[in-house]
């Protein structure tokens, strides 16, 4: 059986769900951030696969933009995490409960 669109989409879906579960169950902010990136990468796989199998260019161009936005997002997010660590001395989400109660 030849590899088609379905197989690529399956990989994208599985990768997205793994990233989602990671965001939900991990306690370390940096690892949560990595799992968010994993979800972005999963969406890019779906984009490129659709683009390839439909013979259009738009999916590839969108992945271009996703890469750019992801790079900007990582820079800002990590700066926020560093600023947070400076004030609170922790990056574990269960200790960042200033809004609780």
């Amino acid at each position: 059986m030849s590899v088609g669109l379905t197989e690529y989409l399956t990989v994208a879906v599985v990768l997205f769900v793994i990233g989602f579960v990671g965001v939900l169950i991990r306690k370390n902010t940096l690892v949560i951030y990595m799992c968010l990136e994993l979800m972005l990468v999963a969406s890019t796989i779906a984009f490129v696969a659709f683009s390839r199998f439909n013979g259009t260019m738009d999916g590839n161009v969108f992945v271009f933009f996703i890469l750019t936005v992801a790079a900007a997002e990582v820079a800002v997010g990590l700066a926020i995490i560093v600023a947070l660590f400076r004030r609170r001395q922790t990056v574990q989400v269960e200790e960042l409960n200033a809004l609780k109660n």
Binding site: V3, Y8, V11, L30, Y33, M34, E37, V41, T44, I45, V48, A49, S51, R52, N60, V63, F64, L67, A70, A71, V74, A75, L78, I81, V82
Partner: peptide, 29 residues
């Protein structure tokens, strides 16, 4: 996977931007 999908430019960009810059930034932090 991107190479298998004929998106060679995106494959290279993925290595450069993600593996090169983003992961290095993560490790640095």
């Amino acid at each position: 996977l991107f190479v298998l999908l004929d998106s060679f430019l995106l494959a290279v960009l993925m290595i450069l931007v993600y593996a090169g810059a983003v992961v290095a930034l993560f490790l640095f932090i």
